[in-house]
């Protein structure tokens, strides 16, 4: 069989994991930014393993579809503008939307 006649192996479309992301399933806490303290140094953007942070219209925004709540951003922020708050409230553990 010539190489050109070999069947094409199907592969996933680029970046499809982003479309189905729902990290609220595993997140226990989420980052909250204090806009007044943030100086837009962008360090947190490069320390986020999950590409959850981006600068949008002059402030850092967190994409809660991607954030797993590791807390690296809160530890690494040089001006301590980020605090991690619990994702669940109440003794039954409801997700706060």
């Amino acid at each position: 069989m010539a190489v050109k006649e070999l069947p094409v192996v199907p592969s996933a479309r680029p970046g499809t994991m982003a479309a189905g992301a729902a990290m609220e399933r595993i997140r226990e806490r989420r980052p909250v930014f204090e806009k007044q303290k943030c100086n837009l140094c962008r360090e947190c953007l490069f320390y986020c393993p999950d590409a959850a942070l981006a600068v949008d219209q002059g402030e850092v925004r967190v994409d809660l579809r991607f954030c797993k709540g590791c807390g690296i951003c809160a530890v690494e922020c040089p001006v301590r503008a980020i605090t991690m708050v619990p994702e669940y409230a109440g003794n039954r553990g409801f997700i706060e939307k």
Partner: peptide, 15 residues
């Protein structure tokens, strides 16, 4: 390398 990947929280490899 987009978000939504299967790494652990705080994964150094994904970073």
């Amino acid at each position: 390398f987009t978000g939504g990947h299967g790494g652990c929280r705080g994964c150094g490899a994904a970073l």
